[in-house]
Design a protein around this nucleic acid. Structure first.
Lengths: 353, 353
DNA sequence: CTGAAAGCGCTTACAG
DNA sequence: CTGAAAGCGCTTACAG
């Protein structure tokens, strides 16, 4: 009773056109599925004309191999994990964009895994994540990238990983080094060149490698120019806006105020702005400020903040690319490297002495 | 020659303890693998004591089913996709946190898929993403959530999805409604209650549903209180800081300035702050400002910005939860709903008239 | 350079 | 409530 069709309550969904499989391709091309498999996996053991013929067919049919079937056979998925512990939103997002740049059209996808590195079971959580999903590899973002115990665990279970950190903490093939020391040194040189001699520094927590490197880079560059930074001019804060406010209050409450402050990140620099505003200290006339990150916040502040830019997106791209590149050949080459540089805006000028 | 061991250049990695499979569990428990499978899939057709015995065994061995094998057999992965087109970083990140809240310990993972909804092939790109990975479902975040063509495509290929939008654009079982109209109305009521009668509005692009809803909500609430908003007091901008600056310049250049401005988001509100600062207009004494989003920026600004908060994390949680909940039972229930509310800070006060 | 067989770890029908 | 057989779409040995 064909008329009944019309009375059915729900329209039948369009018959899902079953996607072609490796068997379809093999049959249509008149080769074995193993040959198709070789082509999928870029094996050189296929005659050129066979390869071209089959590839043309694959395009025509719109065939793409099933990652789950491949993963099951390979005992490894086509998933890259990104593990991080709560950096700023912009940093995470840029890192993700970068990773996806590298993964585009590779057949790999990005799975995100934020975690709390202060919670006791977090390494176990990452292990479960990696093992359950049989991840192809993971990107370790600061600050989890600095945790040697995490890296050791991944090594022990045989999981590929790349660590993004201020300095090389691991074999070159597993590192993307961001050279925070150089970025901070550039900030120091810049302030020095403007004529500042009485400087101050608000650092991130010393438990972060980035904070240590930025501090050392800044202090080292000043020393090289013959400028001493007294202990009282270095305040450790927490990389947050609020901690930046507290640190700035300490630094700007005395009678002899520094003429310039370098902050370990933009959030803390925003804290300095807040205190300066309340205290009636004009930036940059009475106080120069430099941040680190070149976050969107830097240009929202008034005056726009001079800040050290790190190309986070590029960093993420490199870290992900290393994970999906061929295993071999990575032996001898040096660690991947991303360099920061100063973006000059309007938050600094010579001290009016 | 056992001594040779010591001369090997690389230490052999610890024999990877092969993870237990469904077969191991079945054998150890003395049941068929099908019974184990039933337990994995929470089938009620298993005797209670059998279930408990097997589950204890699974915990003991640390067994967890291979998602790729399950996916291959189910013809569907255990991956949830999040598709979005460049909202602010904080919004994306909060949405991801929320989605992960819902996915935690569910066996599902979150795969991110930013895209450019103005590029011609973007719907095709999402389709390939969904079909290649055989995604279990996708979350559509504004503004791609507002694209009916995208939703239609997903419906056509039989892909589950949830749309997060200012109003219901689809069946209730597929919607998380954010009620932007109400949030904007609350802002209007607040400004009206302070005594403002000469108000202005900087909206996002009318191509965003959120912009329309916030506009209508704001204007509608004012009308209800007998306040008219002249055309010249409504400026359409682009949801960006720069566009906010341009809009504010237009609004604040005339001789008769509004006493309060409501902005479609915090970025544009930051633009208003910038213009006010340059023009020597004191916020809140001469100008009250309200934003939307309650982003971190809101509390970085000075004075801290009163803004409409939307609980983005919760929104993401709900959207993801809908995707992994049982199919049935979702029929009759109303669309999921998340309500915005005003966070009062220091950017508003009665007009000094 | 190419192929037939067996297997990756699960589930779906189909029986009982 | 439980199970034996076949299959999901690939790859890895092993032959030729």
């Amino acid at each position: 009773m064909p008329a009944a069709k019309k009375t059915s309550k729900t329209v039948a969904p369009p018959a899902p056109v079953k996607a072609a499989t490796i068997n379809d391709i093999a049959r249509l091309a008149g080769v074995s599925k193993k040959t198709v498999s070789r082509i999928i996996n870029r094996s050189p053991l296929v005659r050129q004309d066979t390869r071209e013929r089959v590839e043309a067919l694959m395009r025509e049919v719109g065939y793409s191999p099933d990652p789950m079937a491949r993963g099951l056979a390979f005992r490894r998925s086509f998933l890259i994990g990104m593990v991080y512990d709560n950096p700023t939103a912009q940093f995470i997002v840029n890192m993700q964009y970068g990773a996806l740049d590298a993964l585009r059209d590779s057949g790999f996808e990005l799975v995100v895994h934020p975690c709390d590195s202060r919670s006791p079971g977090y390494i176990d959580g990452v292990r479960r994540f990696v093992q359950q999903q049989k991840l192809h590899g993971v990107m370790l973002v600061p600050r989890v990238s600095e945790d040697q115990a995490l890296a050791d665990m991944l090594g022990a279970i045989g999981c590929r990983y790349t660590r993004i950190a201020a300095v090389a903490l691991d074999e070159p093939s597993r590192m993307v080094v961001t050279h925070d020391r150089d970025g901070a040194a550039e900030a120091a040189d810049y302030l020095q060149s403007l004529g500042h001699r009485d400087l101050a520094l608000i650092t991130g927590p010393r438990s972060y490698r980035s904070a240590i490197e930025r501090t050392d880079g800044f202090v080292g560059a000043l020393v090289k120019r013959g400028i001493e930074l007294p202990k009282a001019r270095v305040v450790e804060a927490g990389y947050t806006f609020e901690s930046g406010v507290a640190a700035a209050e300490k630094l700007l409450s005395g009678k002899r105020k520094p003429t310039a402050i370098f902050c370990g990140n933009d959030e803390m620099a925003a804290g300095v702005y807040r205190v300066a505003l309340r205290a009636g200290i004009n930036i940059p006339r009475q106080l120069s400020v430099v941040g680190y990150d070149d976050s969107p916040l830097a240009s929202r502040l008034w005056p726009p903040l001079t800040s050290v830019r790190r190309d986070t997106r590029d960093t993420g791209r490199v870290a992900a690319a290393m994970l999906i590149q061929a295993e071999e050949g990575a032996g001898a080459r040096p660690a991947a490297s991303v360099r920061p540089h100063l973006i000059v805006r309007d938050s600094c000028q010579p001290p009016d002495s």
